[in-house]
Amino acid sequence: MITQQQSVVAPNALKPKTTKLGINLAIAYSVFAAAVVGTFAGKSFAPNGFELVVANHYDLWFCVGLALVGWVFRSVGGHKGAIITMTILSCFIILTLNQGQLVRYLSLSALLFSMGMYGMGQSRNAVRVLISIELMLNAVNLNLIAFSRYVDPIQLKGQLFAIFVLTVAAAEAAVGLAIVLQLYRNTSTVDMNRFNLLKW
């Protein structure tokens, strides 16, 4: 855990860092709020969903506690990744605690898929983009196997599809990393912003 004790001593040096951290934290907590709104929207499709949430509000309290722990981390000057992880985890737990088992697995795979999508769009290293694609393919596999467990447990079509996805993922990793190696030889960089060979 990175503490910022030195910057507390010098308040002038603290200021730009806190604004940046504040923006990031505002984003994290707005995502959290959007997830809470989303859970009520999702529950409202079901009959008596809202009453169910109000009746079992232990998960809400759990979530508030996690958010408080995140706030304590932030006030100590905690690591950004810890705050983000805590936010995502609390969102995930509040969203899935009252759901069925299949929906839990599906929402976990949706979460992993969107995390992979974020990494694919945001990272500048080409190899990290490939890692994010692997994460997305894994989320798809989890989805297929959850379906084959709960919807089709006799014929196991989902597991067969997952085997083919595994094969294609292996091929994709080999070819993609070979392309990255060749690009590195030609341009001597792996920065995604500098791959402008096809630019006219």
Binding site: G38, G42, Q99, V103, A110, F113
Partner: peptide, 10 residues
């Protein structure tokens, strides 16, 4: 993610 979740849940 929120769109997927709303589509999945229920």
């Amino acid at each position: 993610f929120i769109t997927l979740y709303v589509a999945i849940s229920g």
